[in-house]
């Protein structure tokens, strides 16, 4: 196979690999401090993620919401619009999808309509800060972030009062009707249709959008040099607005897939922070859809592998957050690290 990879692509890949390596090294130190053998820990992490067929499937299931969210964030980060609000957009999508599904009951179009509405809800929730940015000049980092709290508490109120399940004691929504449940693709696993949609539909579509379409070109132009983009006749505001709304759409979809593929009810604990994990993944994948896909599976493996590590080696569950935190530090400083290594002559390209 003749693969044409440019030097700058090599450099980008190397940058991400270095970040990952450094994060794992730092995590090793943590393992040593807590009395675990890091080599063993990583071994169990791998086993926990890919040790057998059903564990691998579980990792793919875990990957799905992370992948959807981070693909969307890649779109928005590409034009340097920093959507920190995927968590809120995810909750709103999940909630609206659930309400639609429960209200419609068992009809042939329940699933389709719920999916359409969860996407719209994510778009709308992202659209508010997008309009605030383009029309009022309010920084999206702050608005998207704060709207996470609004969304999460609003959802908790909805499932505690108006949409509380009549048949359970907890604040959660009613069970989705059978027609709104994503079908299982491999019997006796949790591999639902959403996983396949994410892998075989979302990745190619986002790839097409970002790498082949005129919109992708505009995203890049606006991100690289907004002044030149404006001069070139590109509508900067519209591009930014679309980017944010698209990332909201995918986050909303991720949320509803979690409900209709995994939990079957809307709960306040639906997401363990996938909206934030998506940020790490999108940055690690450098807003490239392929890079993001690979990073998603990596992070999902850490999520699931960490369960095994904590079970076998008696380590705290928090290592997932720890690795993510360390990773984001190294990803953000990877350009400087790279330059340093190049200057010292350790790396030559």
């Amino acid at each position: 196979m003749q693969l044409k990879i440019s030097k700058s692509t090599y450099r980008s890949i190397l940058k991400s690999l270095i970040s990952v390596a450094l994060a794992l090294v730092v995590t090793s130190v943590l393992f040593i401090l807590t009395g675990a053998n890091p080599v063993l820990a990583y071994y169990y992490m791998f086993v926990g993620a890919f040790g057998n067929f059903s564990l691998t499937v579980e990792t793919l299931v875990r990957m799905t919401p992370i992948l959807l969210v981070s693909l969307g964030l890649a779109v928005s980060f590409k034009c340097k619009v920093w959507n920190i609000g995927a968590e809120g957009q995810l909750y709103m999508g999940a909630m609206v999808g659930t309400i639609a599904a429960v209200s419609l009951g068992n009809t042939p179009v329940t699933l389709l309509i719920s999916i359409a509405l969860c996407i719209l809800a994510g778009m709308a929730w992202a659209g508010i800060p997008a309009l605030m940015k383009t029309h009022l000049g309010i920084n999206e980092v702050i608005t998207t972030f704060l709207m996470n709290y609004v969304a999460i508490y609003f959802v908790q109120w909805l499932i505690a009062f108006p949409f509380r399940s009549p048949d359970t004691l907890f604040p959660e929504s009613a069970q989705l009707p059978a027609a709104a449940i994503l079908p299982i693709m491999v019997p006796s696993t949790r591999l639902h249709l959403g996983v396949l949609i994410a892998i075989f539909l979302a990745i190619p579509l986002v790839y097409l959008l970002m790498m082949r379409s005129t919109f992708g070109y505009k995203l890049k132009a606006v991100g690289e040099n907004p002044e030149a983009a404006r001069y070139g006749g590109i509508n900067i505001k519209r591009t930014m607005l679309m980017a944010l709304v698209i990332s909201g759409a995918l986050a909303g979809l991720a949320g509803f897939f979690e409900v209709s593929g995994i939990q079957f009810r809307m709960r306040g604990s639906l997401s363990p922070g996938y909206g934030y994990t998506g940020i790490v993944v999108a940055l690690l994948g450098q807003s490239n859809p392929i890079g993001v896909a690979i990073s998603s599976i990596f992070i999902a493996a850490i999520y699931n592998g960490a369960f095994e590590v904590s079970r076998v080696l008696n380590q705290p569950q928090g290592i997932v957050d720890f690795i993510q935190g360390v990773l984001i530090i190294f990803v953000l400083s990877s350009e400087s690290i790279m330059r340093f290594l190049e200057k010292k002559g350790v790396i030559k390209l």
Binding site: K220, N225, E227, A229, G233
Partner: peptide, 21 residues
């Protein structure tokens, strides 16, 4: 440098800047 060209994009992309649609 600030207005006429997008340094991080390729030469062919830059040449098509105003006619990409």
């Amino acid at each position: 440098m600030r207005r006429g060209v997008i340094l991080g994009m390729t030469i062919s992309e830059n040449l098509a800047l105003k006619r990409i649609d």
